[in-house]
């Protein structure tokens, strides 16, 4: 009798624990974001100023844009390591072709980003190479191409349209934030409202079943990597506009890792079948605030990276629980 009731209680406790963990997985990133904002309001002088919020948000705009593409790729149970290199290539293209009007140069950069996506998607979807290896190729190739284009120089950019992205304001909101919001809107719409969005989730959840249900699996995979490439190129445009010059070595460096971090911390499972758009944005902002907060309170960059590591492990741990539940 006693053992029975203990067993029942144990089951209930387990169920509760699963519920708590599931809730944490889905909402943990928002809770953490609120906590860190509250902390800063209380303990960081001049945190709640328009200028500071603007700076903090602007700093994470590029990661947000790259991470949104990454979230869709991860939604298909893939990964795109080429995004940082695509950013660098995009910047190099911008300065090389800034002779043509800025809009044309931007369009060219986006098209090239898309073509890199076609290549990645082809390797993954048609040839059948594992995404981590397929996209690793362009992680090297992309940055090399950027270096070749720039020939060791870091040329400044003078085009008004491109510079306007970072210097302009709409209703007091920085152009980079607007540029990121446009990407957020487009990705949210794609994931939620289009067939393509539904199909990419299906492919991520069970590719074989999707194929047998008539989902164009190859086309979907190529499409996802194209979107990731275009978004990375867009982030490259934003980056170049923001630092007003192109740098083949530093632009977009390690962005693939920042993006994966934002996606994972935002609650998108690496196993595919789910894409969390708002969670990814929140996670990108969270990671940025975490870093600024630590640095403001005199922690070194090394310490802030350690904290990042802890957050990642925590997020992945919660996902692991999900996988078992």
């Amino acid at each position: 009798m006693t053992s029975l009731s203990t067993a029942v209680a144990g089951t209930a406790a387990r169920a509760d624990r699963a519920t708590v963990l599931r809730w944490t997985r889905d909402n943990g990133v928002y809770v953490a974001l609120v906590l860190i904002v509250v902390y800063n309001v209380l303990f960081t002088p001049r945190f709640i100023t328009w200028d500071n919020l603007d700076v903090q948000l602007v700093l994470c705009t590029r990661i947000v844009v790259v991470a949104l593409g990454m979230a869709m790729v991860i939604g298909t149970a893939g990964i795109d390591l080429s995004v940082g290199a695509v950013m660098a290539l995009s910047g190099a293209l911008l300065v090389q072709f800034s002779g043509v009007p800025g809009v044309g140069a931007i369009a060219l950069a986006l098209v090239i980003g898309g073509l890199v996506g076609v290549l990645n998607g082809f390797l993954v979807g048609v040839v059948g190479i594992q995404p981590i290896v397929a996209t690793l190729a362009f992680l090297f190739a992309g940055r090399s191409l950027a270096q070749l284009l720039l020939a060791g120089k870091n040329p400044s950019i003078h085009d008004k349209v491109i510079l306007g992205i970072s210097s302009g304001h709409v209703l007091g909101v920085n152009g980079l934030i607007i540029a990121a919001l446009v990407a957020v809107g487009l990705v949210a719409f794609t994931v939620r409202r289009t067939n393509f969005g539904r199909q990419l989730l299906a492919v991520g959840d069970n590719a074989r079943a999707s194929y047998l249900s008539g989902v164009p699996v190859r086309r979907t995979l190529i499409g996802v990597y194209v979107l990731s490439g275009v978004l990375a190129a867009w982030a490259g445009v934003m980056d170049t506009a923001s630092i007003t010059s192109a740098n083949a070595l530093s632009s977009g460096l390690n962005y693939e890792l920042f993006a994966i971090t934002a996606v994972v911390v935002g609650g998108t499972p690496l196993t595919g079948g789910r894409v969390r758009v708002v969670g990814t944005v929140a996670a990108a902002i969270l990671m940025q605030l975490l870093r600024s907060t630590l640095i403001f309170h005199s922690a070194t960059d090394a310490v802030s990276q350690m904290v990042t590591a802890v957050v990642i492990v925590g997020a992945v741990y919660i996902q692991r629980v999900r996988a078992r539940a």
């Binding site: 989730l201 299906a202 959840d205 069970n206 074989r208 079943a209 047998l212 079948g273 789910r274």
Partner: peptide, 9 residues
């Protein structure tokens, strides 16, 4: 399981 359902959807 392998060819039919999309388990998490």
């Amino acid at each position: 399981k392998l060819e039919g359902i999309l388990p998490n959807l």
